[in-house]
Amino acid sequence: MTNTKTARLGVVALVVAVVGICVVYLTTQMAVPPAYAKVGPTVFPYAVGGILIVLSLFLWRDAVRKNWHCEASDPDVPPPDLAPMGWVLGGLFLNLILIGYIGFILSSTVMYTMVAKGFGARRLWLAALVGFLLALVAYYGFARLLDLRMGSGLIEDLI
């Protein structure tokens, strides 16, 4: 295990510590009615925050002792393949932005096509068509069956 990899594990331990500290700090900011002072709504948050801080120390120890075996620290596992991940994340991000404007069906079609591209689909027009039909069927089948309200959109308003 190289030093950069150990450092990365250390960062993970640090993140856990920061979350724990934030939890404890936010809990001190809660205004608790005096009637509940003894077993109030802050006991569990304090406990969870404290546990996270303690665990971060153990994680730190595991990182330093190189006693933390995972994909990120395994020299045999290649680093994450960024191009496919970029397509998938881009699809998710676009969906997030578009869904409110053009509706579920079209924005899901965009996401579907980008994710399919990320996973190596060659004929993008076919992926787009499949994605569109899947979103349409899902909208009218799954969503109606479960009575989910998918909201309006360009296609949704046509039908």
Binding site: Y112, A116, G120, A121, A127, G131, L134, A138, F142
Partner: peptide
């Protein structure tokens, strides 16, 4: 590609 893109559509729904 179709399977995982589909999973994300269902996740969104």
């Amino acid at each position: 590609p179709y399977l995982y893109a589909g999973i994300l559509v269902f996740a969104t729904i």
